[in-house]
């Protein structure tokens, strides 16, 4: 589904952010992407989406990312941004949801019917006609996921999905993420959430993959996490006391 082959990237005039990153994510796989601040998590997600020009090969659903394949790759991947305010740019939740499908040629009526189904599946049908700037942070995050699901992506890329959510909304988000059968690549500092939602973890440190393994194995390796500027998930810390 998503393959990185020796991918490197530097911002103009800056240090390398990604250095020879390689990994493969299979369809339906649930992968967490963890690392300290500035490790390159968000850049890696942007590289998968073709939002930054990288060296090396990024292969999405069997096609190497290029100018020609970019539209299809972007339809294949759903991207949930760290800040939902940056994701929701239309006046209402419904307007935002139909934006993507209508860009891909769907009629407004068909797109609205699809939006009804997705809102109902996510349990947020009440938000359909709400103004984006009037809904809470948690509701906005769920609505942002709903807008992304409208394009029926084969994989979901999420950047810090649980940031600024209260415990109840965080739990609702985890349940929603777990209910989705598509492949997921979730970049987060919330290691407990990664443990709850992912089977596999990529640990990125200084632009390189420092570990790639089963979520439990990586997230319980105190020495590895500390070497990468992280700590054990709070749940694990509690159980070890």
């Amino acid at each position: 589904m998503i393959t990185f082959e020796n991918v490197s990237f530097s911002y103009p005039g800056g240090e390398p952010v990604l250095k020879g990153v390689s990994f493969h994510i299979s369809p339906g796989e649930r992968v967490g992407l963890i690392g300290a601040n500035g490790a390159g998590k968000s850049t890696l997600l942007k590289a998968a989406l073709g939002l930054v020009d990288v060296e090396g090969a990024v292969i999405i659903d069997g096609s190497a990312l290029s100018r020609k394949t970019l539209p299809l790759a972007r339809k294949t991947l759903g991207y949930v941004l760290q800040d939902s305010d940056n994701q929701m740019f239309m006046p209402t939740v419904l307007d935002d949801m139909v934006f993507g499908p209508m860009n891909y040629g769907m009629s407004r009526d068909e797109a609205e019917a699809l939006a009804d189904n997705i809102l109902s599946d996510l349990g947020i049908a009440r938000l359909k006609h709400r103004q984006n700037h009037k809904i809470s942070g948690g509701e906005k995050r769920m609505a942002a996921i709903a807008t992304v699901l409208m394009s029926s992506p084969k994989a979901l890329l999420m950047d810090e999905p649980s940031s600024s959510l209260d415990p109840r909304n965080r739990r609702a988000l985890i349940n929603t993420v777990n209910s989705l059968s598509v492949a997921k690549l979730i970049a987060s500092h919330d290691l407990d959430m990664i443990l709850d939602t992912c089977d596999r973890v990529l640990l990125i440190s200084s632009g390189q993959i420092a570990a790639d393994g089963a979520a439990w194995d990586v997230l319980t390796d105190q020495r590895l996490l500390e070497e990468s500027g992280l700590e054990l998930p709070l749940g694990i810390q509690g159980s070890r006391k």
Partner: peptide, 25 residues
Amino acid sequence: DRAESLFDSMLMRGFTGEFPGDSGS
């Protein structure tokens, strides 16, 4: 910065320079 993020979000949802019209109605 924010405008760029918004634009990324639009690109990710198939924006090609024109806001989608409703040809059906």
